[in-house]
Amino acid sequence: MGSDLSRRVAARREELGLTREEVASLADMDPGYVAYLEEHAPRLTRQALYRLAAALGTTQDYLLGADTAVPPGSATTAAPLPTTTELSPHRCMELVGPGGVGRIGLVAGGDTAPTILPVNYLVRDGVIVFRTAEHGVIAAHLPGQAAFEVDRVDGAMSEGWSVLVTGRAEPVAEESEAVALRVRAPVRPWAGGERDLFVRVVPDRISGRHVSGRNLH
């Protein structure tokens, strides 16, 4: 099975309208090796990666998927027109289950637009859990209805998924429960600093979509 690097090499070559033989000539590689690169998870030397990126008119970071300084989806892609499929709530929770970085959106009384902030989160017993500052922006909006979004996007391949959880966001007020969460949900705050207030988002509605040529649900 090909790696992300393999897919990016193949996509960039097709984007340029080049054959494997032409890329091999430009990169001073054997055509068979270029084919291998596109179909397997290769180990490239720095010199080989440099030559390959130069032959494809792109950067080493792009081929490695490290071009994270630009918004998702801004890279050109040679992937075919992708399809969008809805995900079941169960599959949505499977995707967000490992935890990571999500975005919490809350609307305070009198506001006309939501406040949206990134947070590191974990999922425990079907509930989204994260930590924030006790007197910070998020805490000032609690308790209340909230939207919590997590997504993963590969802009170069026009592939990814997005999950939206809506429900009630509330601070964990009981000290015993907060102590238990410190043990069971040792989530690292996104922005660092003193962020000792645990917040949970109890889902009312879970929805999601997957964009790809493959079916994920």
Score class of each variant (00 low, 15 high):
residue 181 L to R: 09
residue 110 G to C: 02
residue 125 D to S: 14
residue 126 G to Q: 08
residue 103 R to P: 00
residue 177 E to C: 00
residue 81 L to N: 07
residue 164 L to M: 12
residue 160 G to N: 06
residue 170 E to Y: 04
residue 92 C to E: 05
residue 134 E to A: 15
residue 118 P to V: 07
residue 118 P to S: 07
residue 138 I to R: 00
residue 134 E to Y: 00
residue 113 A to Y: 15
residue 159 E to H: 14
residue 147 A to F: 07
residue 154 D to L: 05
residue 149 E to R: 10
residue 186 P to F: 11
residue 90 H to M: 03
residue 155 G to F: 11
residue 69 A to D: 14
residue 92 C to P: 04
residue 146 A to Y: 08
residue 131 R to A: 14
residue 112 T to M: 05
residue 179 V to N: 03
residue 138 I to K: 10
residue 171 P to L: 09
residue 80 P to L: 05
residue 107 V to K: 04
residue 92 C to Q: 06
residue 125 D to C: 04
residue 102 G to Q: 03
residue 75 A to E: 13
residue 109 G to K: 06
residue 106 L to T: 13
residue 123 V to P: 04
residue 73 G to N: 05
residue 103 R to N: 06
residue 154 D to Y: 08
residue 141 H to N: 02
residue 152 R to K: 11
residue 76 T to D: 10
residue 93 M to D: 01
residue 105 G to M: 00
residue 99 G to D: 13
residue 77 T to C: 07
residue 93 M to A: 03
residue 82 P to N: 01
residue 181 L to F: 09
residue 171 P to S: 09
residue 107 V to T: 15
residue 124 R to H: 15
residue 85 T to L: 12
residue 139 A to E: 06
residue 122 L to C: 06
residue 157 M to N: 11
residue 130 F to S: 09
residue 177 E to K: 12
residue 109 G to D: 15
residue 115 T to W: 02
residue 151 D to E: 15
residue 146 A to N: 01
residue 162 S to Y: 03
residue 162 S to G: 14
residue 107 V to M: 08
residue 121 Y to D: 03
residue 78 A to T: 02
residue 116 I to M: 11
residue 126 G to N: 04
residue 110 G to M: 02
residue 160 G to H: 04
residue 100 G to R: 03
residue 124 R to D: 12
residue 131 R to F: 12
residue 117 L to S: 09
residue 99 G to M: 09
residue 69 A to T: 13
residue 128 I to F: 05
residue 185 A to T: 13
residue 102 G to K: 07
residue 154 D to Q: 07
residue 84 T to I: 13
residue 102 G to D: 00
residue 70 V to Y: 14
residue 184 R to M: 05
residue 140 A to G: 01
residue 113 A to P: 01
residue 117 L to W: 02
residue 136 G to N: 08
residue 156 A to R: 14
residue 72 P to Q: 08
residue 118 P to M: 06
residue 97 G to T: 03
residue 112 T to E: 14
residue 169 A to W: 07
residue 110 G to D: 01
residue 125 D to W: 03
residue 94 E to R: 06
residue 70 V to F: 13
residue 124 R to L: 15
residue 144 G to S: 06
residue 177 E to H: 11
residue 70 V to D: 08
residue 174 E to A: 15
residue 109 G to T: 05
residue 175 E to I: 10
residue 73 G to T: 05
